[in-house]
């Protein structure tokens, strides 16, 4: 019995109350090299002290604009990028010290946005899906048999698709293959990095239905990274909003969409195009572009675009503070005694 199977059967410490994933103070700064000698001239704080938990069986949506660090976070979680610091605990065990990265990747798999770039153009569909199990020592016949099962699971007829090459498939079909490939190692946690962003609406709905079905039938946990607030609202149980590498707000999906506390979250939500011709958006919620992550602002990263910014926002970065049950926001207005004129009175 492999470690992942043991984990699958809930034999880890803590039982069902134990979060499947715990992330603490995760940091990744990319140096920008320049000049003749390749010295570091600047750094991009791609992920800057991110912390969150994912419970067993839930879907955590991560939203934000380009450069907010959501995709870097996804890659850090599965160690495609080495973090500079911070801790990731999978099923209660610290990755790197208590369980090796190889073991982590048995329990965590990833689906990428670009369905074409994430399949090797020279491998048939069945070889791509069987690759992971083959690497793990599964015999070829068994791995191929399993690949056919998975193809059926994601709604593709193996007789028609198994021997095809990626360029012979449509975008939606390729994304189904990518999902099958990620499932081949029987993970418990699937990290979905913009999995439907490149798809047409009618195909997007098919893939979302598939993801919901698979989650139920396989008891999966999802981390769903997307810039599309509609899709995130549809699929997530909890939502984390990121801005320039930090968590702006995190909470249950209803709380985020009905009672957002961070001005950035509210701006994001009101920037969604209205579907009602009689109630078109009349005013842009915030002006300007997201700042360049190479030279981020001081204090609260959002203060340059925030309508409520005050002196304290420029000088001090607000910590993520609890607002309500399981709902936290990193805004001085939510921190009692922060010095902001609209701060909640101290309890």
């Amino acid at each position: 019995m492999s470690g992942a199977e043991a984990l699958r059967q809930g034999q880890e410490a803590g039982g069902p109350a134990q979060p499947l994933l715990q992330v603490r103070a995760l940091k990744k700064h990319f140096p920008i090299r320049g000049g003749m000698l390749g010295r570091t001239v600047a750094t991009v704080n791609a992920v800057d002290g991110v912390a969150f938990e994912v419970a067993k069986g839930e879907t955590l949506g991560i939203v934000g604009e380009s450069g907010c660090g959501k995709s870097t976070t996804a890659r850090l979680l599965i160690r495609l990028i080495e973090p500079d610091s911070g801790e990731v605990r999978f099923a209660g065990q610290s990755v790197g010290s208590e369980i090796p990265v190889a073991e982590l990747r048995h329990g965590v798999q990833m689906v990428f946005q670009d369905s074409f770039a994430s399949l090797n153009p020279r491998l048939t569909i069945e070889d791509s899906i069987a690759f992971g199990p083959r690497v793990r020592g599964v015999a070829e016949a068994e791995a191929v048999h399993k690949a056919h099962d998975l193809l059926r699971r994601v709604g593709l007829d193996p007789a028609q698709f198994a021997r095809r090459y990626p360029h012979e498939l449509s975008g939606g079909q390729r994304q189904r293959v990518n999902i099958a490939r990620a499932l081949a190692l029987a993970p418990r946690l699937l990290i979905l990095d913009e999995p439907v962003s490149a798809l047409d609406k009618s195909v997007e709905a098919q893939v979302l239905n598939l993801l919901v079905d698979l989650k139920q039938s396989l008891g999966l946990t999802y981390i769903f990274v997307s810039h599309d607030l509609n899709v995130v609202q549809y699929i997530s149980d909890r939502v984390m909003v990121m801005y320039l590498g930090r968590v702006a707000e995190i909470g249950p999906v209803e709380a985020i969409y009905r009672d957002a506390r961070h001005p950035y979250t509210r701006a994001l939500l009101s920037a969604m195009p209205s579907m009602d011709p009689d109630r078109r958006t009349q005013e842009a919620p915030i002006a300007g572009d997201p700042p360049n992550p190479i030279n981020p602002p001081s204090g609260c990263l959002f203060h340059t675009r925030c309508p409520y910014a005050e002196a304290v926002c420029q000088s001090t970065a607000p910590a993520l503070a609890p607002v309500k049950d399981r709902h936290s926001a990193a805004c001085h207005m939510e921190i009692a005694g922060s010095g902001h004129s609209k701060a909640r009175p101290a309890a």
Partner: peptide, 12 residues
């Protein structure tokens, strides 16, 4: 390309 990352993620 992402398929190399996917291969790394599957433990190769």
């Amino acid at each position: 390309l992402d398929f190399v990352d996917a291969a790394r993620a599957s433990g190769a």
